[in-house]
């Protein structure tokens, strides 16, 4: 039964992605992408990666979708020039060749991953029971620190180049009560995801994305005015994530002699502290990435 489901799911992903990429209407294209994202996050579940599924649904489909919808109308269509068929065929052949090469590379004999046994052996010392959290915040925390730096740079660039947007009109009488329901709910879900990340799927990124999603809905409904986005406090909160993570990494080196090496037995405390700071900072960053600066200088 399940293989059938998987095959249908896989086909649906391909079809919706093709639709998203080739449909002419902007909104339809973005909707196609959103559907692809949701189906993909379903497939992550089937591939045994619930943490990634949560992140894909919240960030990959949710926030990216919101960003795309925001911009879809503001980016004019390029005049579509019909490519010569020969070029089309060449590009198609190349794409098929690359896909074929990928399938062949992955299916032909390869060594088994070295990581699962290493992760399993070291999990008890890592301070997290959820292996994905252990990898993200302990074994390979350096990747995560650089990832936060990517968000920092993205925010800097967006604040620098984003066009000054007119204030959006508040969305009408039904949205405000909706926002009032939503606010406590996002805080609840965000907190839950953050706490749960230590032992079950979840963590700072998913929690931050949920918080940011709630805040963006509030911003669109007019409950949070554009005043807030103009204030420096939010920007400072956004950049605090990188600063705190970097300082924690150095502090750990002072204590234990290894960069990002948490003191023995205290790893859990360190991870929770870092994750809490990251959650708030990620939420603020994603919120500002969506709204950009209210005024450009």
């Amino acid at each position: 039964m399940l293989p059938v489901f998987d095959v249908v799911l896989a086909a649906a992903i391909l079809v919706s992605a093709a639709l998203a990429l080739w449909v002419r209407d902007r909104i339809a294209a973005v909707s196609g992408f959103l559907v692809t994202g949701l189906l993909v996050s379903l497939s992550w579940l089937r591939l045994g990666a619930p943490d990634v599924a949560l992140a894909e649904a919240a960030i990959g489909a949710g926030l990216t979708g919101a960003l795309l919808l925001r911009s879809a109308h503001r980016i004019p269509c390029a005049p579509s020039k019909a490519l010569p068929p020969s070029l089309w065929c060449a590009a198609g052949a190349l794409a098929i060749a690359i896909s074929g090469a990928i399938v062949w590379t992955v299916t032909s004999f390869g060594a088994a991953p070295v990581y699962p046994s290493l992760v399993a052996d070291n999990l008890p010392e890592s301070g997290a029971q959820n292996p994905v959290t252990a990898v993200l915040l302990n074994f390979r925390a350096w990747d995560t620190l650089l990832e936060i730096a990517v968000l920092f740079v993205a925010l800097t660039v967006v604040i620098m180049v984003a066009p000054a947007r007119p204030r959006t009109a508040p969305l009408g009488p039904l949205v405000q009560p909706f926002a009032r329901v939503l606010l406590p709910l996002t805080v609840l879900i965000g907190g839950h995801l953050l706490w749960q990340g230590g032992h079950a799927p979840g963590g700072a990124f998913q929690a931050g994305a949920v918080l940011a999603g709630g805040a963006i809905a509030l911003g669109l409904s007019g409950v949070i005015g554009s005043k807030l986005t103009r204030q420096n406090g939010l920007a400072l909160l956004a950049i605090a994530g990188l600063a705190i993570f970097a300082l924690a990494a150095l502090a750990a080196e002072v204590l234990t002699g290894a960069l990002l090496g948490y003191p023995a037995g205290e790893a859990k405390t360190w991870i929770i502290a870092i994750e809490s700071a990251l959650t708030l900072s990620i939420a603020a960053t994603l919120f500002l990435l969506f709204f950009g600066p209210a005024e450009r200088h």
Binding site: R74, A169, L174, F178
Partner: peptide, 29 residues
Amino acid sequence: TLLVAVSGATTGHLIARDQFNPSVADAEE
């Protein structure tokens, strides 16, 4: 279920409002 109910109703409302009151959307864009 609660979230789906609330957000479904709200989005439905917003889409309908946009249809009948396009001036709001135009003013935004």
